[in-house]
């Protein structure tokens, strides 16, 4: 099942829930206020419990600068989960090339080509055995 944790207001990134995973899709150009807001929403969602992973889909993000790089690292660190439970999905090739030249590394953050691949990665390594949990399937 999938339920909304927070009702997104204009200019807010919605934090949804898919089984034990919080999938977050960043907009093309995230301004700083939205990033701070997202950080709060995400940690509130984690505090409610049962979360085993976070997937941050950045396939729509046109650039990652040092600010957004830090936001991503902080989202991972303060989600209250081991950093490895956060997967950044869908980074554009041009963004990846630019990040290298900028000199930015995203320590501890795992990456996957797509959100599907990220969910699979998290499912394989951490989802509890399916036995009677009943939380997996989404509508």
């Amino acid at each position: 099942m999938s339920e909304a944790f927070s009702r997104p207001a204009a200019g807010q990134v919605p934090v949804l829930r898919l089984g034990n995973v919080l999938p977050v899709t960043l907009p093309g150009d995230l301004h700083d206020g939205m990033a701070h807001r997202l950080r709060q929403d995400l940690s509130e969602a984690v505090v409610r419990g049962g979360v085993t992973g976070v997937v941050i889909d950045i396939s729509g993000v046109e650039i990652v600068d040092s600010f957004l790089g830090r936001v991503l690292a902080e989202l991972a660190a303060q989600a209250g989960l081991p950093a490895a439970r956060t997967v950044v999905a869908g980074m554009r090739p041009a963004v990846a090339i630019t990040l290298v030249e900028l000199g930015l590394t995203l320590p501890g953050l795992r990456t996957a080509p797509t959100t599907e691949a990220a969910l699979e990665l998290l499912g394989r390594t951490a989802a509890p055995p399916r036995a009677g949990r009943g939380r997996e399937g989404s509508p």
Binding site: I63, V95, I97
Partner: peptide, 9 residues
């Protein structure tokens, strides 16, 4: 596209 991305960054 890559050069645009570098300059915007």
């Amino acid at each position: 596209l890559v050069d645009q991305t570098k300059l915007v960054t």
